[in-house]
């Protein structure tokens, strides 16, 4: 019996085994590469930026001197932006998702809308900036305002929100719709009282993740002309504004080392904000899983 296993070409097998082990290590190494890169990124930013992470950063306006510079106007600008975008993109995105999942007839036009949305999700963000420049800034005459920025960013995140909301709505069991209809509910009553409450936390997860992407976006806002030097807080929708990523870019573009470190401090603030939003999204997701 022993011979049965020994007769095989042992050299060939051990060679293949060694091969397998080497590749396994290579694959593991590749996987670790991503983790190492992320760690290097975080370490670089924290070591560069931790020294300047003081209250001045939050209370001062940008200045020609790095030591006196802060990002108050950028932080406030980003928050205003968020407050404008969030309701707008929520209503438009969830509305579109409800239409597509609950109301749309299954015809070519609906398929076209669906294809269009997935195509839009792949359009580079800078192209949305060009659209915003032509439509909101020029055609609508909104100039380089907070409103132009918020509308542009809304269009940018809309496809992501629609797709995420559609998935959330599709995950609501049919039985829950049937239960509502069987009690004499109309379509809208069923959607608003049964389908939406069942899917709202998953929808919110998608919305928050999309908004967190928007908060980190730089390019489209540069194109529509969000100013790089803003030493005041916007007082109306039509004021010029700046946001955190643009302020950070402005600092990175300076040759002096002090501004580079300031940029790193700004990045820490931006990343903390993103972490908070992502944690909120994950918590909502966990809550949602209990509901299904």
């Amino acid at each position: 019996m022993n011979n049965l296993f020994q007769d095989a070409n042992r050299q060939q097998i051990s060679g293949r085994r060694r091969n397998d082990l080497i590749w396994r290590i290579l694959f593991l190494g590749a996987t670790l590469f991503g983790i190492v890169a992320l760690s290097a990124l975080i370490i670089t930013i924290v070591t560069d930026g931790i020294a300047r992470l003081n209250p001045d950063l939050f209370t001062n306006y940008p200045s020609r001197r790095a030591s006196a510079s802060g990002m108050k106007s950028a932080i406030v600008g980003s928050l205003y932006m968020l407050c404008l975008m969030a309701p707008l993109s929520f209503v438009l995105g969830v509305g579109a998702a409800i239409y597509l999942e609950e109301y749309a007839p299954k015809n070519r036009f609906t398929r076209l809308i669906q294809l269009n949305i997935s195509t839009l999700a792949g359009v580079p963000s800078i192209v949305y900036g060009i659209l915003g420049l032509a439509i909101f800034v020029r055609t609508f005459g909104l100039e380089r305002s907070l409103l132009s920025g918020a509308l542009t960013m809304t269009l940018l995140v809309l496809p992501i929100i629609i797709v995420a909301s559609q998935e959330a709505i599709r995950a609501v069991p049919r039985a829950r719709r049937d239960a509502s209809f069987a009690l004499g509910a109309t379509k809208w009553q069923t959607v608003s009282r049964s389908v939406l409450p069942s899917s709202i936390s998953a929808i919110m997860t998608g919305v928050i993740l999309a908004l967190s992407r928007a908060i980190g976006e730089t390019a489209p806002l540069i194109i529509i002309g969000a100013a790089t030097y803003v030493a005041f807080l916007p007082e109306s929708l039509f004021d010029t504004f700046t946001v955190m990523p643009i302020q950070i870019y402005n600092w990175i573009a300076r040759p002096q080392e002090a501004f580079q470190d300031l940029a790193a401090s700004g990045i820490i603030v931006l990343m903390i904000m993103l972490v908070i939003m992502n944690v909120a999204a994950i918590m909502l997701r966990n809550k949602y899983q209990k509901n299904i």
């Binding site: 039985a175 049937d178 239960a179 009690l183 069942s198």
Partner: peptide, 13 residues
């Protein structure tokens, strides 16, 4: 004309 289904389908409320 009310209806009760095969699987109990309460709302998540």
């Amino acid at each position: 004309v009310g209806m009760v289904f095969q699987q109990a389908n309460p709302f998540p409320k």
